[in-house]
Amino acid sequence: MCLAIPGKILKTTGEAFIRTGQVSFGGIIKQINLAYAPEAKVGDYVLVHVGFAIGVVDEKEANRVFEYLREMEELDELEQDLP
């Protein structure tokens, strides 16, 4: 029910509460309400739930999950290297 999926904005029209955009979900294109993501531009990825963009993907943060893993591994190696 709280399923929300990221899609890429191809085009936007209108403004404020009636701003909408064409959003592509891996090739499937839907008209999405962008009222809650005023900062979202063409090319951005937005998180979409029941026809509304509820947030913009923070691309800088998107790799955190994997960086965290790498940091853990490095820490492990460091500990193993210590006498």
Partner: peptide, 17 residues
């Protein structure tokens, strides 16, 4: 109109419109 906080903004906007 069912849902948690995730769905509330969509439903709120619809009623507002």
């Amino acid at each position: 109109a069912v849902g948690f906080e995730t769905t509330a903004p969509a439903n709120a906007m619809t009623v507002h419109q």
